[in-house]
Design a protein around this nucleic acid. Structure first.
Lengths: 231, 231
DNA sequence: GCAAAAGTGTTGTCCTTACACCCATGC
DNA sequence: GCATGGGTGTAAGGACAACACTTTTGC
């Protein structure tokens, strides 16, 4: 019989960090919130928002802390994606990082802590990044492409009231495809969890579209559990 | 400008482990490979296979090492699922664990290292486990249910040559549903990546079924990339 | 010959796709 | 009145679900 405290004392210890891939949507393209690295090796290169994990803090809490520090937003979608652990991924020695992805509406917040040139960047214009962050971003983008098709995540990237055009733009930007407008609208109409607000867009230079809200309760009731074997 | 080595030295360090949820299929039910814990707090309780992560070792390597030590199998499906980090999840103090899931054919290997009563257990008969391992197992079972519908993972649980009945049994056991035999066979026939071996089952007490193999190359060519918005 | 599972087709319904015209607004 | 995107319906094809009988083998 083994004493757990003594056992754990024999384990090697590793510095842990979290990195947040914070996606936003604006001007019809998918954005990600990045800073410029201040490490000497990666000076000026783009970097994800991250921090070390504090003692007694779990990973979800750490990721949420990073997000709140930078965006001031609480109650935002934030989900663990993957843990990266190549021994040489960090120039400072071994650092294991757990990556979280978040989706939020660019217009819904003011950026906080503007140090290190915190800015939104268009995802498909990013080439080089610090560390293995480009690889991480690519994984999270794939992850988002998949998730957005099977869960109503797109609404996190939009204002509470949005037009069907805006919604379609989100899908087209993330999936990098064109969708048929009539079929797209029909699909969301039959799904039945968009609520018509009886309001119209304003400040548009054309016929204003209706504004809708997402009905989360309806979604919870209607969502599918078994999809079907399909690959 | 910051020196990365000095920076990383300021980070708190944490013991890391990997835990492997090794799924198998036998006697028409989904199994998982477990040991009995030898920690004093959890004496006799069922536990996942795990180990601490060695210095200079990445997580994939550590998980693979655990798998090979116990099953002797290499080149087995093994994928990272989630990292668990609640500060009180381990009685020996803070331990962060990254969980991997593996699928393998019970008949294809001899268990190695039979210490701690290493055995296959039927997944839906497991109630209590050591640590947070029941919660981990439940997450991995959900993960498997989802993945098995969108990727051809089921074949990892079967012999190289299998009957359609066996294949259907895998899906029925994992998804915990009954499927229509005719529609199931039609579906896999039209997918077009099962190869007829022109062999029949032997040692069965009824009409023998044809044996098929999975054609991975065909799958790679035919697999879908865009599924469609559907939730 | 009996038990047990293999093998096989059709029909109706639903979902998906493709496609074109008029409408409301700002300028 | 013109440019811009909003809003709408239909028809064809494909996928899925429901359903029953004959065949082959071991015993």
């Amino acid at each position: 019989m083994i004493d757990p405290i003594k056992l754990v004392q024999t384990y090697p210890q590793v510095p842990l960090t979290v990195d947040c891939v914070i996606f936003g949507f604006d001007e019809n393209s998918l954005k990600v919130l990045l800073i410029k690295s201040d490490l000497s090796q990666y000076h000026g290169k783009l970097s994800l928002l991250g921090d070390n994990v504090h003692t007694h803090e779990d990973l979800d809490t750490a990721a949420n802390r990073v997000l709140v520090q930078r965006t001031g937003m609480t109650n935002v979608f934030l989900e663990q994606v993957h843990t990266f652990s190549k021994p040489d991924r960090h120039p400072g020695g071994r650092v294991v990082t757990t990556v979280y992805a978040s989706l939020l509406n660019v217009k819904h917040h003011e950026l906080l802590l503007h140090d290190n040139e915190l800015k939104w960047h268009t995802v498909n214009e990013i080439s080089e990044m610090a560390f293995d962050h480009k690889q991480i971003l690519d994984l999270c983008t794939s992850w988002l492409r998949k998730r957005v098709q099977e869960q109503p995540l797109a609404f996190n990237l939009l204002p509470v009231k949005f037009s069907l055009r805006q919604l379609q733009n989100v899908y087209e930007a993330i999936l990098d495809i064109k969708l048929d407008r009539r079929n797209f609208r029909k699909k969301f109409a039959t799904m039945g969890f968009l609520n018509d607000t009886n309001q119209l867009e304003t400040n548009v230079t054309h016929r204003p579209g209706k504004l809708y809200t997402f009905d989360f309760v309806q979604y919870q009731q209607k969502k599918k559990h078994f999809i079907g074997i399909d690959f």
